[in-house]
Amino acid sequence: MLTIENLHAGYDKTEVLHGISIDVPKGKVVTLIGSNGAGKTTTMRAVSGMIRPRSGRVTLGGKEITGQDSFRIARAGLAHSPEGRRVFPTLSVADNIRLGAFPRYTRSRKRGDIDADLDKAMEMFPRLIERRDQLAGTLSGGEQQMLAIARALMLNPEVVLLDEPSMGLAPILVEEVFNIIRRLKGEGITMLLVEQFAAAALDVADYGYVLENGRIAVHGSADKLKNDPAVRAAYLGGSH
């Protein structure tokens, strides 16, 4: 569904990604693991068009999207819940969620039943229901994170990129976020997931990629990575 081939990307003069390749098959969850500064967020940004890759190829459902503007990539069906949530602080919760469906409202993407999806998103995150009309900027960090995920899903996307959906959340909420990811996977949603909780990410994922200094060090099925001694030592706390 989403393929990344030999991607090079970075900022101004520094190159962060030195040719990485990742394959996200339809209906599967792929997780990208790596230490701070490895380039996980940069990968997601280069895929969704927030930054322009220097070279390489990105395709979505067989169509090339390399270097296109982010709004075109979104209209093509790629949703990206970015690092740091980035909800729209002066808009209400409901308006934030609606904007996730913007290309559907404007029919640059198949419309479907937006209101039904809105209800479904609300039902998936019940604590957003009572805060429907509250400004997103006044939500707690955890609530903002749920809003960011709900907003991304409103695109009715072919692929969802989730960049650290559990960042800064209390343990109980981290659990909740992983339950939601599991539920989305059950619905057949294709996902590329970046998580600091590598063990939990590998538990939900089908495949994993380990990113080290802008290069893919190891990749394979989630089970294979979970049992890889080097991966265990570096990312899974070395034990169990």
Binding site: G49, M50, D69, S70, F71, A74, R75, R86, F88, T106
Partner: peptide
């Protein structure tokens, strides 16, 4: 209007608005 909200979203966070499929230019 959804277009007006897209304008507000662009004012709030241009990059994030782009991710919503909004042509911020």
């Amino acid at each position: 209007s959804i277009y007006g909200k897209a304008v507000v979203a662009t004012s709030n966070d241009r990059d994030a608005a782009g991710l919503m499929g909004i042509n911020t230019r």
